[in-house]
Computed example of a mutant assay.
Amino acid sequence: MTRTDTPAGALQEAHIPVQAKLAAAWASIMFLYIYVDYLGLYEPGFIDDILAGVVHKFDTGPTFVSLALTLMAIPSLMILLSTTLPARVNRATNLVVATLYIPVSVYNADGASWSYFYFYGLSIGLEVLLLAFILRAAWTWPRTTRAAASHDLAQARM
């Protein structure tokens, strides 16, 4: 068997474009955000605080709600932008947004009760790992060589 041969029944590795990997990671982050917020409702006293107009230490007025929506809208939009932006802009956008969201994720531990430290610690850890994956995928975005780009351009002209 040569190095290029594969054993019968071996699974073929599918090539997944960087854009799809980035969109999947942003979607995973959004699922985490949604479930962490939902499961956080089970923390004793959390709903009472919401009914009193407070989330963690913040009043739940229009400013809080607008800020919360903005913080969640950006990762939601990154799912779409990761699949539609041109490669150079896509790479830069993912690097900037993922970098900015690491402190946002870590800040979520502020105000959390110690009895739920494992829950919030696990969720923040997973979010930061996903953001690190996004940073790595965007940073190592494959580049085409001049010869390959010239060949692709020649093929497009035919």
Rank of each mutant, 00 (worst) to 15 (best):
L67E: 04
W141D: 06
L67Y: 09
D152G: 10
K21L: 14
L69F: 03
R146K: 08
L11E: 02
Y38G: 07
N94T: 04
W141C: 11
V65N: 08
V96M: 05
T60E: 02
G45K: 01
P103V: 00
L39Y: 14
P17D: 06
D59S: 13
K57V: 09
F133T: 00
R157K: 10
P44E: 08
L77H: 07
I34V: 13
G40E: 04
T4D: 13
T60M: 08
I74G: 00
A73Q: 00
S150I: 12
P86G: 01
Y120F: 15
K21M: 14
L41F: 12
S66I: 00
A10I: 10
V128W: 00
W141I: 07
A149Y: 06
Q12T: 15
G53E: 05
T2I: 09
I16D: 01
R3Q: 15
T6H: 12
V89Q: 12
Y120M: 12
A98G: 06
A98F: 02
S28E: 10
F58E: 07
T2H: 10
A14D: 09
Y107W: 12
M78P: 03
T60S: 04
V54W: 10
L95P: 02
P142N: 00
T6Y: 14
S76H: 03
A20P: 05
F64Q: 03
M72H: 13
P75T: 00
F133A: 07
Y33L: 15
L69S: 03
G125L: 03
G9E: 05
R3H: 15
R157H: 09
F31C: 07
T6M: 15
A8N: 10
A148I: 10
D59H: 12
L22T: 04
T140C: 13
R88V: 05
F119K: 02
A132N: 05
A112P: 09
I47E: 06
I47C: 05
R88D: 07
V54Y: 13
A98K: 07
L11R: 03
A92M: 09
T63F: 12
D152E: 11
S28D: 06
F31N: 02
